[in-house]
Design a protein around this nucleic acid. Structure first.
Lengths: 190, 190
DNA sequence: ACCTGAACACCGTTCAAGT
DNA sequence: ACCTGAACACCGTTCAAGT
């Protein structure tokens, strides 16, 4: 493994075990068997390293979405499966998830991160499109609908991460909230 | 103004002008005309000071929601007005907004912050309830529906803050996204 | 080309002391 | 009760130097 890949992997591991605060460039360097400032030979600064972690995770997410899309499930099931992929990622890697969608300083970076995020979102749009063709979702512009679903998912995940998803609020889990939304959006047949 | 109120006001001002990184306890102390560690005499640590800022903002938000609710507008207009209040706050005070809903380390704090957030959300629920009574929103549990709308709004705001709300994604603004959602949720009459 | 070590200018936080 | 000043253990980042 090249040094830069190693640094990204170590940073990702630190995010998982200790959260964003644990990712000091000094810790990344040492955990990689290098000096405290070796990371600077591969990344411009701390934000650039974190953006590289986010980029790798978006690549993974795009692949996961693609697998779901190419599966043999019903369109509506594919949609829920895609959402579940993100939910599971946010539960297993909360700090890394926040890097993807809730950290303006990182997410706003252009280049690889931006384009990879776009590819992942493109897969999601295609799944939404299938749902619309199957009349499982209403006939709105598909990118708009996909954006709304994605935003809702992210909002629910953030709500849960903040400990604000309480039964008194009528929400018990991200998944059930999304199921309710999809159900409410489904075209009515009367 | 008591010293603790002063420190909260100074911290809020620093959040507005320089973002979260600008809020060092040293800067807060100095900008308050005190020493670098005077904040420790009023707040346990940096997170506690930030939580106090968030609490004050939730109090303001609850009042703003209440004004909207008690206005003479139509229920559906009240809903959009309440959402606009939050959107405007997120635009004018992005760093403070993130403290309210997108910062687990802060948002997860119990006590005053938690209860104030709950009061603000309660006002929002009542507005949603009025919309349901007026048939402007579907007949789902009101807390669930309110939670979904709030989560979507937060997700859209985060998406915009990350620079990911691109026309290619079919979303041009937080407000138009929410209008589309409310329109899609509106009970169909055929 | 890639890495190390010293150094700088910061932080949050603690503690002893002042009034 | 409230505040200051010194001190500690960190950071990100820069720079000169090594191989």
């Amino acid at each position: 493994m090249t040094t830069d890949k190693k640094l990204i992997a170590v940073a990702a591991a630190l995010l998982d075990t200790g959260g964003e605060d644990a990712v000091t460039l000094r810790a990344v360097g040492h955990a990689s068997g290098l000096s405290h400032n070796a990371p600077y030979k591969h990344f411009e600064n701390r934000d650039a390293l974190l953006a590289a972690v986010a980029t790798a995770d978006f690549v993974w997410l795009a692949e996961a979405f693609k697998s779901v899309r190419q599966s043999s499930a019903e369109p509506a099931a594919k949609l829920m499966n895609a959402l579940k992929v993100v939910i599971a990622f946010s539960v297993e890697h909360p700090a890394r998830y926040r890097l993807l969608l809730s950290n303006p300083a990182i997410a706003a970076q252009k280049g690889d991160l931006e384009s990879t995020a776009f590819i992942a979102f493109g897969e999601f749009i295609m799944i939404v499109q299938e749902c619309q063709a199957a009349k499982a979702l209403p006939d709105a512009p598909n990118t708009t609908l996909a954006g709304l679903l994605f935003a809702t998912m992210n909002g629910l995940i953030a709500m849960e991460a903040s400990g604000r998803m309480r039964p008194e609020k009528g929400l018990t889990s991200v998944e059930s909230g999304l199921k309710t939304l999809v159900h409410l959006l489904a075209p009515k047949r009367r």
